[in-house]
């Protein structure tokens, strides 16, 4: 294994709302090696998108990054000046947006929206070199060169999403965060876009974080899966470990809620509601919904700990090194 390209350490984000402080990200830590693909799953409001925004340093008031590090390729993004952070976006860490339908400026040609990104990072590059790079980028996501001269409204949803990916890889970033890149697309296009992301990732050798709800998609194309709950990572394991034998009770519930061929038609949800970030339950945040919760779970907050098989779990069941299933 190579050295990690991305290290997130104790990242904390708080939103200061009228109704109180909401800890949207609570001491989140994980590492990712270059070439690795990690899926990030969790219910709506669990802090997935906040994590993506925090890593891009795009948290806006009333939210604030309270502490922690985001080290990409040896540089801690959190300590960079604002100007340096602008340069780091797209060149070190790139973001592919959720709503690709509206993520392109309707009154600018695709080409102009690609070149302005390059120009922002490299003011000395010649126009022809810049155009060539954009064209290559478009071709590498299976788009025609003509797209360069087109307007967003002339493209289909899948094509727009590809353009966003093409913009994301313009400067060959070390880490790509894709925020539900397939959510608004039909199933066939979803598949094609995922294949494109996979290929791009291989070509660039970068690390990819894919945020999404679709466990099937995760199983097919990710290496690792990280599960978020109430602003915390509760389990990080390989796809195989996650899908065959999840440790954390929430992870287990997630996997069991998936439809499979054995128990056709019996869909199991997870009882209860995701907690409000304004009033996170004491102890383990999952304890009110957990079938295995003990009294201790209401008091003691579990920490994310590495297990003997290499995965990370944050659950009191596994804290005394007693690995019981």
């Amino acid at each position: 294994m190579s050295t990690p390209i991305l290290q997130v350490q104790d990242l904390q984000v708080t939103y200061y709302t009228d109704a109180g402080r909401a800890k949207a990200l609570d001491n989140v830590s994980f590492t990712l090696n270059s070439g690795e693909k990690m899926g990030l799953v969790g219910e709506s409001g669990s802090g997935k998108s906040t994590m993506a925004l925090a890593m891009m340093r795009m948290i806006k008031p009333p939210g604030r990054i309270e502490g922690g590090k985001v080290i990409v390729d040896g540089t801690d993004l959190v300590t960079l000046s604002d100007g340096e952070m602008l340069k780091a976006r797209l060149s070190k860490i790139a973001y592919i947006p959720q709503g690709a339908m509206n993520s392109l400026n309707p009154v600018m040609r695709i080409g102009a929206q690609m070149t302005d990104a390059i120009r922002a990072h490299d003011s000395s590059i010649s126009n022809s070199a810049m155009t060539e790079r954009c064209m290559q980028s478009l071709e590498s996501v299976d788009l025609k060169r003509e797209v360069f001269k087109m307007y967003p409204h002339e493209l289909s949803g899948g094509m727009k999403q590809r353009v966003c990916i093409a913009i994301g890889i313009l400067l060959k970033p070390k880490v790509i965060i894709a925020d539900e890149p397939t959510s608004a697309l039909d199933v066939v296009t979803q598949r094609q876009v995922m294949e494109t992301i996979n290929r791009i990732q291989k070509d660039l050798g970068c690390a990819v974080i894919l945020i999404g709800h679709d466990m099937g998609l995760m199983a097919q194309s990710m290496d690792k899966v990280a599960v978020m709950y109430a602003g915390k990572l509760v389990e990080i394991s390989t796809v195989r470990q996650m899908f065959t034998h999840p440790f954390h009770p929430y992870g287990q519930a997630l996997i069991h809620s998936l439809p499979n061929l054995d128990n056709k038609g019996v869909l199991q949800g997870i009882p209860g509601l995701a907690p409000s970030l304004l009033r996170i339950p004491s102890g383990c945040a999952f304890h009110p919904r957990c079938s295995k919760a003990t009294e201790k779970c209401m008091v003691v907050t579990p920490r994310l700990q590495q297990q003997p098989d290499g995965r990370f779990v944050s659950c009191l069941l596994y804290e005394e090194d007693k690995v019981t299933a």
Binding site: M56, M85, L86, K87, R89, P97, S103, A120
Partner: peptide, 21 residues
């Protein structure tokens, strides 16, 4: 709008976003 957000993700300067987007 998403496109203004994405423009920030692209690392564009405030002036460019203000003017073009």
């Amino acid at each position: 709008e998403d496109y203004v957000n994405f423009a920030e993700h692209k690392g564009l300067g405030a002036m460019v976003i203000f003017r073009d987007y």
